[in-house]
Amino acid sequence: MSNGQDISIHFQCELENRADIDLVVVVPIFSDPDHLVKTLKTIVSQRPDVPLATLVVENGGERPTGADAAKAFFLNHPSDSAVIICRRRGRCQALNAGLSQALERYPNLQAIAVIGDDEVAAPEWLDGLMAVQEAYRADIVGGPQLPVFKHPQELRWKRHPVFAPPYDASGPVPMLYSASNVLVTRAVLEGMPQPFLDPAMDIVGGCAVDLFHRCKAAGFSFAWAADAWVTQSVPEHHATAAWVRATSLRRGTVSAYLARRSDPTLAGRLKRLGTSLALMTTSLPRGVKLWAKTGLAFAALYYFHVARGRVTAEVGLIGRGDRKPGQ
């Protein structure tokens, strides 16, 4: 079974009527199929007060190893579930496929939660997200992604802003930054145009931040659920200064692209370049404070790297005119 969007159904299991499903968990596959099984175990062990379904999205290579692993899991753990294959490669494409297919398959769903295949959910993960959503009437709720490192010497990185959660306490927040460990209500899914995430943002990263900025402009609200945590396995090459620096630079680049959308004129770009240069001049004093707070010397360069990413992107955008990222 397939449609015109290069999406096919690899497996499906229905215990409830699809129309009765209120909550869908979407799991895009990008990593090790063995870890995917760990993720799925923590999903089927959730006990929310509403009917739940799981939708797994394979976005790998020619062999659907992740989809096969998910199918085998659901055959041994029957639950309302589906495994789809999205042939359009990219994180944004996989997430778009998961969100759109969830809406199509479960017409009365009230919310979609997203978790990565490299993550493991807390026992009351979904309850935590839903409780905060109900308490604050938030349209989108996020929760912590707590890093799990392979070696003790890598634990120092958990204090760096690249890995540390952006907020400490539950409640309303101005913005969210990750497409994983997030709950999106039906109001957002109906109010935002499809495709929800811009595939062009896969070039620089930050497709989730782009979506959330557009959601905020449309009037949707955000909240943070501090107790709705997931743990995230960190590859060894991510626990390095080079990767952390590159990620910090990319955050600055994404910030520049998003700012450009609000004012794409040359005057607007020059103004943003001035702002970025000003941020660079204040980055080192701010970095020293961050060093003192985290006890991590490398964190002192975080704001500098973000500002440098902004400046580099602004200079590139001025020279590239109105072309989209990657063109």
Rank of each mutant, 00 (worst) to 15 (best):
residue 4 G to Y: 02
residue 4 G to P: 01
residue 5 Q to H: 13
residue 6 D to T: 08
residue 8 S to M: 10
residue 10 H to T: 08
residue 13 C to Q: 15
residue 15 L to A: 08
residue 16 E to S: 14
residue 20 D to E: 15
residue 23 L to Y: 04
residue 24 V to T: 11
residue 29 I to F: 07
residue 29 I to N: 14
residue 31 S to G: 13
residue 31 S to C: 04
residue 33 P to M: 04
residue 33 P to A: 11
residue 34 D to R: 12
residue 36 L to P: 10
residue 37 V to T: 13
residue 37 V to S: 05
residue 38 K to R: 15
residue 45 S to M: 13
residue 46 Q to K: 08
residue 46 Q to V: 08
residue 47 R to M: 07
residue 56 V to L: 06
residue 61 G to A: 13
residue 64 P to A: 12
residue 66 G to V: 03
residue 70 A to G: 14
residue 72 A to V: 10
residue 72 A to S: 14
residue 77 H to E: 15
residue 81 S to D: 04
residue 85 I to T: 12
residue 87 R to T: 04
residue 88 R to F: 00
residue 93 Q to C: 12
residue 93 Q to V: 07
residue 96 N to A: 08
residue 96 N to Y: 04
residue 97 A to Q: 12
residue 97 A to E: 09
residue 97 A to M: 07
residue 99 L to K: 07
residue 102 A to D: 09
residue 105 R to G: 01
residue 107 P to N: 08
residue 111 A to W: 02
residue 114 V to D: 00
residue 117 D to S: 03
residue 122 A to D: 09
residue 125 W to S: 01
residue 135 A to F: 00
residue 139 D to E: 10
residue 140 I to R: 06
residue 145 Q to L: 15
residue 148 V to M: 11
residue 150 K to Y: 07
residue 151 H to T: 11
residue 151 H to A: 11
residue 152 P to C: 01
residue 152 P to D: 06
residue 153 Q to E: 15
residue 156 R to A: 13
residue 156 R to P: 02
residue 158 K to C: 13
residue 158 K to I: 12
residue 160 H to A: 02
residue 160 H to N: 10
residue 162 V to A: 04
residue 163 F to C: 02
residue 163 F to T: 09
residue 169 A to W: 04
residue 172 P to F: 03
residue 175 M to D: 06
residue 178 S to C: 11
residue 185 T to F: 10
residue 189 L to K: 11
residue 191 G to A: 14
residue 192 M to F: 06
residue 195 P to C: 13
residue 198 D to C: 05
residue 199 P to I: 02
residue 201 M to L: 11
residue 204 V to K: 04
residue 204 V to S: 10
residue 207 C to N: 10
residue 207 C to R: 03
residue 210 D to W: 15
residue 211 L to F: 15
residue 212 F to D: 05
residue 212 F to I: 00
residue 213 H to W: 09
residue 213 H to Q: 12
residue 214 R to G: 06
residue 215 C to R: 13
residue 216 K to S: 04
residue 216 K to M: 07
residue 218 A to Q: 14
residue 219 G to Q: 09
residue 221 S to I: 09
residue 222 F to S: 04
residue 227 D to C: 01
residue 228 A to H: 06
residue 229 W to G: 08
residue 231 T to W: 05
residue 232 Q to M: 08
residue 232 Q to L: 03
residue 235 P to V: 07
residue 236 E to I: 07
residue 239 A to S: 11
residue 241 A to G: 05
residue 244 V to Y: 09
residue 245 R to Y: 05
residue 246 A to N: 15
residue 248 S to H: 06
residue 252 G to A: 05
residue 252 G to N: 08
residue 253 T to C: 13
residue 257 Y to K: 01
residue 261 R to D: 11
residue 266 L to E: 13
residue 280 M to Y: 05
residue 282 T to G: 00
residue 284 L to S: 02
residue 285 P to C: 02
residue 286 R to E: 08
residue 286 R to N: 07
residue 289 K to N: 01
residue 295 G to E: 12
residue 296 L to Q: 05
residue 297 A to R: 14
residue 298 F to G: 00
residue 304 F to S: 14
residue 306 V to C: 05
residue 309 G to F: 01
residue 309 G to V: 01
residue 309 G to I: 01
residue 310 R to E: 15
residue 312 T to H: 08
residue 313 A to H: 00
residue 314 E to P: 02
residue 318 I to D: 02
residue 319 G to W: 00
residue 322 D to N: 12
residue 323 R to E: 12
residue 323 R to S: 12
residue 326 G to H: 03
residue 327 Q to N: 05
